[in-house]
Simulated assay, not measured.
Amino acid sequence: MAKLAIIATIKTAPGKRDEYLKHLKAHAERCLATEPGTLTFEILVPLEEPDTVMLYEVYASPEAFQAHWTGLSMQQIKQDAAGLQVSLTGVRCNIAQ
């Protein structure tokens, strides 16, 4: 089965990126520790966009991503970071072999 990569862009509330990052880092650690299909979860901090965070995630399969998207860690970060996230967009990608 083919791996699935996600490139996501998150806009945070103005001036709240550092606070949001605390919750996002905990989320990434939980996902890597408890979701066998989550292979990579990298958090990127754009240098010239102070209220933006980007993610590079790799999943073992589309099903693994769906398990992540509906999983407990996702529910936890939504609760923990309520009011800190303005928007989330993502692009699903195949990994060139």
Rank of each mutant, 00 (worst) to 15 (best):
C93Q: 08
L44K: 02
S61N: 05
A60R: 08
A67H: 08
V91D: 07
A13C: 04
C93M: 12
S61C: 07
A67S: 10
V53F: 02
V58A: 11
Y20R: 11
N94L: 06
D51P: 07
A13K: 09
L4G: 06
Q85S: 10
A2D: 12
E42V: 11
G90A: 11
K22I: 15
E49I: 01
T34W: 00
F41A: 03
K25L: 08
K3Y: 01
E57P: 02
E48S: 14
R17A: 13
L21M: 15
E35G: 00
D51T: 05
L55H: 10
Y59W: 01
G37D: 04
S87W: 03
P14R: 06
L88K: 14
A60Q: 09
T12F: 09
E48T: 09
A96T: 15
A26N: 10
I10S: 04
E42H: 12
Y20L: 15
E48D: 14
K11H: 13
C31V: 04
Q66M: 02
Q75G: 06
E19S: 12
I6S: 05
R17N: 10
K25D: 06
A81R: 03
E48V: 08
I10G: 00
A13R: 04
A28M: 02
E19P: 13
R17V: 06
R92G: 07
E19Y: 04
A2F: 01
Q66E: 14
I6M: 10
R92N: 05
N94T: 10
F65N: 08
L24A: 15
F65C: 04
A5H: 00
T70C: 00
Y59I: 04
K16M: 14
T89N: 12
G90M: 11
P50G: 07
A33N: 12
T12S: 15
L84R: 10
L84P: 09
